[in-house]
């Protein structure tokens, strides 16, 4: 199932598209699955569920706080609700409701944010979610999943429905490079070692996993053996895999499409500080981005394989 270091980037469906398809599939299997959306069904892709199960899709209008709290009520009455909107809206406008009605009493609500990161493109920073890994991870009892591609997203949605407790799934707008075979299996809280390596470890999540694979291929050509870890579960974090990476490769680069000061990188650094301190370089966003095509933005804001390669060189110099 794992892809070799010679990774060839091939685009698959967007992770939001995978979410929408998986949700409709689940809807067919379990009548307790219900969905809330805030006037974005055609963007979050809950539209597939809405078409098949209109009576179980609650269109809340542009009122995310109300949607999240209605979701909590549905869960408290025994349903398995998924509420969805752009990450930028559901996690910010719904945060306080998630805190008191969901996280603290451990209520069985699933939150799926779409249009995460800067790769949404032209709509610009007001719609780009670059803070929500921090927000979701701040909530006790929440499991936080950031899938890399279609297969990983489908697994995440299914896992969330079967798990009792709050879950946040981070998905994106653009077509996502295929990383996994469609039958790939995952374990919650366990990183996937996509490429073995001994000199350095690239730790990536979401859309950045494909860039990490490209970087590892380029580094191999230069004689540098880079391990690639896909952190699909950001919380709970696979501290063992990170400790092993630090012990066995001695240096790490973390790459994420999120603010660098509050996302996966800081959680990795915390884990390593506890278990096995090692030099780490962090790639992420320093601040808010701008409008542009997704590719232009990822280039301009340094979220590409060559940026990872540069960071690897920097971190190797610190070994």
């Amino acid at each position: 199932m794992l892809i070799a270091a010679k990774y060839e980037k091939k685009l698959g469906p967007a992770t939001r598209e995978a979410f929408g398809r998986a949700l409709a599939e689940l809807g067919r299997e379990n009548p307790d699955i219900v969905v809330g959306d805030a006037d974005l069904t055609k963007s979050t892709m809950t539209t597939y569920f809405a078409k098949e199960f209109p009576e179980r899709l609650f269109e809340c209008g542009i009122a995310e706080a109300n949607m999240v709290a209605i979701g909590a009520g549905l869960a408290l009455a025994g349903k398995i609700p998924f509420v969805s909107s752009f990450s930028a809206f559901v996690m910010t406008k719904g945060f306080e409701q998630l805190r008191v009605l969901v996280a603290y009493p451990n209520v069985n609500l699933k939150v799926v944010g779409t249009h995460s990161g800067i790769s949404i493109g032209e709509d610009g920073p007001s719609q780009m979610s670059v803070e929500e890994i921090a927000l979701a991870c701040a909530l006790p009892n929440f499991v936080v999943i950031s899938p890399a591609d279609e297969a990983a997203t489908k697994w995440a949605v299914r896992w969330a429905a079967e798990h009792y407790g709050p879950v946040f799934i981070r998905t994106g707008r653009p077509k996502a490079p295929i990383v996994y075979n469609s039958d790939a299996s995952f374990e919650i809280g366990k990183a996937v070692e996509l490429v073995p390596g001994t000199d350095v470890t690239i730790v990536a999540t979401g859309l950045m996993v494909a860039e990490a694979l490209l970087a590892a291929g380029q580094l191999e050509g230069e004689g540098i053996s880079a391990r690639v870890l896909d952190i699909h579960t950001i919380k709970p974090l696979d501290e063992e895999a990170l400790e092993r990476a630090a012990r066995e490769t001695g240096a790490l680069v973390v790459v994420e499409e999120h603010l660098v000061d509050s996302g996966l990188g800081v959680r990795v650094a915390q884990a390593l500080a506890k278990r096995c301190p090692a030099p780490v370089e962090f790639i992420g966003l320093e601040g808010y981005a701008e409008s542009g095509s997704p590719d232009e933005l990822l280039d301009k804001y340094g979220l590409r394989a060559p940026n990872i390669v540069d960071a690897v060189r920097r971190v190797l110099a610190r070994k």
């Binding site: 706080a65 209605i70 025994g78 609700p81």
Partner: peptide, 13 residues
């Protein structure tokens, strides 16, 4: 401010 929405969720269920 949150209880009415939660109650609506229960009523929908």
């Amino acid at each position: 401010g949150e209880g009415l929405s939660a109650g609506i969720g229960m009523a929908l269920a």
